[in-house]
Every structure is written in C-alpha cells, then in structure tokens.
C-alpha cells in the first residue's frame, strides 16, 4: 500500500500545484485589464526583458544560424541538395530555433531575475508592505511583468530571426561560396507569412510562460536565502520545460494537417 499512497500523494501535489499556478495566472491576466494601468512599470519591464536580453539572444541567434548553414551543407552534400540551405535556415530559424532558443535564454536571464527579485521581496516582507500601502502585488508587480513578457518576446524574436538568417547567410556566402543574390532570392521566395507568424505567436506564449513562472515561484518562495535560491532554480527549470511542451502544442496547432 505504501507505493500507492506515495503515488496518490504525488498526484495530489501535482494537481494542487497546477491549480495554484492556474489561479495565479488567471489573477495576473485579470489585473492586466483592471485599472489602474501601470504603463511606466510595463515600459520599464519591457526594457528589462527585451532590450537587455538583446546581446545574449542576438549572439545565440547568429551562431545558431551559422551552425545551421554549416551542418546542413555537410549533411545535404551527401545527396547533392546543398541548394536547399537558404530554405532550411530561414524555416528552421523563424519557426523553431528563433523562438525556442530566445525563450530558453530569456528564461535563464529574466525568469531567474524575476523570481529572485520577487522572492527577496517576499522573505523581507516587502510584499506585505505593499499590501499595507493599499497596493495589490498582483497589480503592481505581476501584471506589468506578464504584459511585458507577452509584448516583448515577439519583438525580441523578430530581431533574433533576422540575425539568425544573417548568420546562415554569412557562412553560406563567405565560407561555402553561395551567390548572395540567389541566396537571398531563395530565402525570400520560400519563406511564408505563416512561418514568421507561428514563431511570433510562440514567442508571445514563451514570454508569458517565462514571466509567469518567474513571478509565481518568487511570490511563493519561503525560508530565507535558500528559499529564494530554490525559487530561482524552479522558475528556470519549469519555464524551460513548459516552453518545450507548449512549443509542440503550438506547432501542432499551426502545422498539423
């Protein structure tokens, strides 16, 4: 009976956690639409989430594009399909690698920072202080961060897409000897609006996931410095897993026939 009891406990704990996270998300979304609107805080968070993530996401994108071109070339050369490289690079970057890698990098940078900041506020009673000052932490801290994540990640991924395709272009032209005009022509000809749109929708979902889990784990942290550290780790791990799971679901939504 002991294994069964443990299985039951684990299942209940999982459902409790999912329920708490869902209620937290619903409250966060509700406060995005409920006045007062915190435009300045949203803008500040957009700079934190987007602008300061540009270097790390840009570097990730350019090297991913470069490696993609190189790997595709060595692989495709085996059956004389080298000319498909522009198409492979642009579709891989816009549909998958741009949003997923940007989401994972932002989870590591922004999600962790949010969990640590809000977690520290929790253990130093700053969240309680907000309430005693007639300010709802969901409205003041969580909703602006969720909105910033929703808006900023697609912008960040749009930039990452361009940088990633440029990485593939540079390797193809200067190392593999492709004709620049033909490369760009093939890239543009093969690219469809849906490729870019699906990537940007994914980015928006990932932005929401990263900020939600950063806020959620920080908000519920306890036990001093160790609790804040645990919250930070949990925020990054759970956001990364949810990004990968939701990536499949959104891909299924857009491209399953």
């Amino acid at each position: 009976m002991e294994p069964l009891r443990r299985l039951g406990e684990a299942t209940l704990a999982l459902f409790t956690a999912v329920g708490r996270l869902s209620l937290f998300a619903a409250s966060g979304i509700f406060h995005i639409f409920k006045p007062p609107f915190r435009g300045k805080i949203v803008l500040h968070q957009m700079v934190e989430v987007g602008f300061y993530s540009l270097p790390v996401v840009g570097l990730t994108a350019i090297f991913t594009g470069m490696v993609l071109a190189l790997q595709s070339y060595t692989g495709f050369a085996r059956f004389s399909a080298e000319s498909a490289i522009p198409q492979v690079v642009v579709v891989s970057i816009t549909r998958e690698l741009g949003p997923v890698l940007a989401g994972l990098m932002v989870a590591g940078r922004v999600g962790a920072a949010m969990a640590a900041e809000i977690g520290t506020m929790r253990v130093t009673e700053q969240l309680d202080a907000l309430k005693t000052l007639s300010t709802n932490p969901m409205s003041f801290l969580v909703a602006p961060r969720l909105l910033a994540g929703l808006i900023t990640l697609p912008l960040l991924v749009a930039v990452a897409d361009v940088i990633g395709v440029m990485g593939g272009y540079l390797v193809s032209i200067y190392k593999l000897g492709f004709n620049p005009a033909t490369y760009l022509h093939n890239t543009m000809q093969f690219l469809e609006v849906q490729d870019v749109v699906s990537g940007l929708v994914k980015a928006s979902a990932f932005g929401f996931i990263v900020t939600l889990l950063g806020c959620y784990h920080g908000y519920h942290s306890k036990g001093g410095a160790q609790g804040v550290g645990q919250a930070t780790t949990n925020a990054v791990v759970t956001a990364s897993i949810l990004i990968l799971c939701s990536n499949y679901l959104i891909t299924e939504l857009f491209f399953s026939r």
Binding site: E117, T124, A129, S134
Partner: peptide, 19 residues
Amino acid sequence: EDLMAKFGMLFQGGALFDS
C-alpha cells in the same frame, strides 16, 4: 485596500523597497 489607508505599519526589518 481603502481600510488600509487608515493604517500605518512599521515592519521589523523595515521592509523598504530596494528598487
């Protein structure tokens, strides 16, 4: 939240907002 306007609170550790 309106009732809180009647209250003032001094927390043990200050609970000042670092940011």
